[in-house]
């Protein structure tokens, strides 16, 4: 009898779970496998085109230094943006978690998180308006700065970094905030009453305890930034050639899908390596 109940339970579990997971399989896992296949053939296998298995798409990456250089450029962009997000976001999370109390904290927290849930493309576009020469930032600075300034940040690397930090800063603030909130205030109080200086408290108590949350936030920023293409396009102009934009070109402009698939797959490998490296810490952050 007990086995019978377990069996109907199992059937119910399968009935409830399979639609969602079949959907994920068709829309995410099978496509990723298809891309692996595409990355090792010569031409798209639709219609009458001739195609065969090849390693050319990967050797193309190794032979031409352009791709590796762009991947490095994208990784460095990721490092820069991540570092800035952590440096700017951590103190902000500290203020929210430890210095502001009650309803004000809830409202302010919501205000920090809200832009993150609005359209990222539109937010990047709004920076293009602010940063352009003779634009709002230029005019404002000229008005308050005693010496003449000529500031045209649009289509520079700084513009791309500013836009990306703006896009992903809330991620770091959110994860750091959750980690900091879990730290017992009495621990800090105890250290202070024993005569510890603030940097000792920061270095020996706060940072070690909030490290999992901070690293989780950093990974959540780094991974999408390495794969970004829309932000460099809009804010970088002609300078905005990155690894992501090259992949975009293979699919929408050059139509070399196998090469695009190989480049995407190399990026995926980089991303997975980073996620795997961070996974022990990420697991700790969730519990």
């Amino acid at each position: 009898m007990a086995g019978g109940i377990a069996r109907t339970d199992r059937l119910r579990a399968i009935a409830l779970l399979s639609p969602a997971y079949l959907w994920l399989t068709v829309a995410v896992f099978l496509p990723l496998s298809a891309m692996a296949f595409f990355s090792i053939i010569t031409d798209v296998p639709f219609g009458d085109t001739e195609w065969h298995v090849t390693g050319e798409n990967y050797t193309a990456f190794l032979e031409s230094p352009t791709y590796a250089r762009l991947l490095l450029k994208s990784v460095l962009l990721g490092v820069k943006v991540t570092a800035l997000c952590v440096l700017i976001g951590f103190p902000c999370a500290w203020v929210l978690a430890k210095m502001i109390k009650g309803r004000a904290r809830e409202a302010l927290f919501l205000m920090v998180i809200l832009p993150f849930w609005s359209n990222s493309l539109v937010r990047i576009f709004s920076w293009a308006i602010v940063l352009r020469g003779n634009g709002v930032l230029d005019k404002t600075l000229s008005a308050i700065w005693p010496w003449p300034v000529k500031l045209n940040l649009l289509f520079t690397e700084s513009a791309i970094v500013i836009g990306l930090v703006h896009s992903y800063l809330p991620y770091v603030i959110l994860t750091a905030y959750l980690a900091l909130q879990a730290i017992d205030d009495s621990l800090i109080e105890a250290a202070r009453s024993l005569g510890a200086k603030w940097w000792t408290i920061l270095w020996r108590i706060v940072l070690p305890l909030s490290a999992p949350g901070l690293i989780a936030g950093a990974v959540l920023v780094f991974v999408p930034v390495v794969g970004s293409f829309m932000e460099p396009r809009i804010l970088g102009g002609r300078l905005g050639t990155y690894y992501g934009t090259v992949i975009e070109d293979q699919f929408v402009a050059v139509f070399n899908w196998p090469l695009g698939a190989a480049l995407s797959f190399i990026l995926l490998a980089v991303v997975l390596a980073i996620l795997a490296l961070a996974s022990p810490v990420l697991r700790k952050a969730r519990t």
Partner: peptide, 23 residues
Amino acid sequence: LLFPPIAIPWLITGTAMLIFFFG
């Protein structure tokens, strides 16, 4: 398995979907 759709950059997921849906 819920994490790949969130954690993998959309550029990769999007291009992979394009390839597969065409196929």
